[in-house]
Amino acid sequence: MNVFRLTGDLSHLAAIIILLLKIWKSRSCAGISGKSQILFAIVFTTRYLDLLTSFISLYNTSMKLIYVGCAYATVYLIYVKFRATYDGNHDSFRVEFLIVPVGGLAVLINHSFAPLEILWTFSIYLESVAILPQLFMISKTGEAETITTHYLFCLGLYRALYLFNWVWRFYFEGFFDMIAIVAGLVQTVLYCDFFYLYVTKVLKGKKLSLPA
């Protein structure tokens, strides 16, 4: 464990909690892409099946359970409890255009052809594009609530911090995982446009609205 991975995990946890609290307290999921949340639930489910097969540490197990639990709770709030506030018209990204190519890529490019490994690889590739429906929805509505921008900032920051974690692990442990690194780079690059708007607008107290 290193400072980048720990702050990355905490940033990820913060994002998940911010979103869950935003929906729960405002009793509304307006502006939130339910499709992205479904993709995140799939990401955690396919990645954390090793909860059933191996124990790494209390931290590892508890964080995984929190992530999976919050992901499903968020999907439940969006599609069941507060479904009346779900903005389906603007959440129109065709997720099959993500899942099919990612599934194919996971079968073609992986570290080994074992089921858990293929699922882990699928999860890594899917996570790198899972935010696209959310970013697409914001581009369609032309704006985002400030709390939603804080959620996205923490979510984007987490994988950026993981990139530093991988530099650290390569330098000090000689460890690197090309699949995770390339997917993490793609994932972080997808946030660059948002990061620019967040820093130049939201941090100056303005509302995030498009076109910039």
Partner: peptide, 10 residues
Amino acid sequence: SLRDSAKDEL
């Protein structure tokens, strides 16, 4: 293995 040590990441 190299892969296993990746698995300790979330």
